[in-house]
Design a protein around this nucleic acid. Structure first.
Lengths: 167, 167
DNA sequence: CAGTTCGTTCAATTCTGATTGAACGAATAA
DNA sequence: TTATTCGTTCAATCAGAATTGAACGAACTG
């Protein structure tokens, strides 16, 4: 017994979906993923995969990969709807949590890796120097610039937890 | 009288170029642009377009568009080298300035536009409501979520100038 | 003046990564 | 059991953006 509802969005929600999609796209994430989150963020009740695919006019395959992506970020969660075999999804509304988690999972590891990369580069620089591949000035110049960068990194590392508290 | 120098980089600088390229790429900017900045950031003396193209093994066309991009962001500047007709480029070392400028030029306008977008959406929501396109609950739910988002936006707007000062 | 050199532009190509349709396995229903 | 529904996976396609080669105009050179 399939419900054959209107399956279209009011303009407010439609525009919101579009905005969310573009935002994601700008950050290098798949547009459809952002659209899905946008759709769910303003959905008063959980939606099934088919709902999502139909409302966004995307394939069920896209909807599936998108939702799994969002689940892995804990940006949405699965909801069991009694009497319906299908999975339903709803957005996690607390964006603050979401940001914190995103920082922990994405930025922090990346920052840390970039710090060790810098350390490696400094070692590398000394090796090049010993191998006679750099002039005295070149060595001094690079060392100074790398140090500058390094100090910026540590400042950022200190800033982000503070920022998180502030928000 | 063309100088036929070795035209290759020590491993420290080569790795730095690679890292800078990947960083840019991650933020949706052309990789080559990041590579150019990385190359110049560790260059003790200004480089010509041809130097850049050769050292990075990219076409002169790419080097040209990349440098113009970076110039527009004030991330590099043109240097006049006496006795050489060609343009030479050097990186602006002060990343702090660069970040501030990037915020002013990129993030701030985008944030502001997103704020007015939200206001528009709230208007839109009321219109949908009056047109009878939304149930009472749907309207209330959306309004609450949009308000939540809106408040997050203003908090971010307040945070960023502070963060800038902190760095 | 003709002949180079330099930097930019633009159409064509290439790459990367998002999206899809089709096929599949698991779970449910009949 | 067989048939159907649901969600995932995967190879193929598609779109958009980066990159290039070629052509051009402007500035220099001799």
């Amino acid at each position: 017994m399939a419900e054959t509802l209107s399956k279209s969005l009011p303009s407010s929600r439609r525009e919101f979906v579009e905005t969310a999609g573009r935002l994601c796209q700008r950050f290098g994430l798949p547009r459809s993923t952002g659209q899905i989150y946008g759709l769910l963020y303003l959905a008063p009740s959980p939606l099934s995969l088919d709902d999502i695919a139909e409302l966004l006019s995307i394939s069920k395959a896209s909807a599936s990969t998108g939702t799994r992506q969002l689940l892995s970020w804990h940006a949405i969660k699965q909801i069991w709807v009694p009497g319906d075999r299908r999975d339903h999804f709803e957005a996690v509304g607390d964006l603050h949590d979401l940001l914190r988690a995103g920082y922990e999972k994405f930025f922090r590891p990346k920052l840390e890796r970039s710090v060790s990369k810098m350390d490696h580069l400094l070692v590398c620089l000394e090796a090049d120097r010993k191998a006679g591949l750099l002039t005295k000035e070149e060595h001094a110049f690079c060392k100074e610039r790398l140090a500058h960068l390094r100090s910026l990194q540590t400042r950022v590392q200190k800033l982000l937890p503070l920022a998180e508290k502030f928000l």
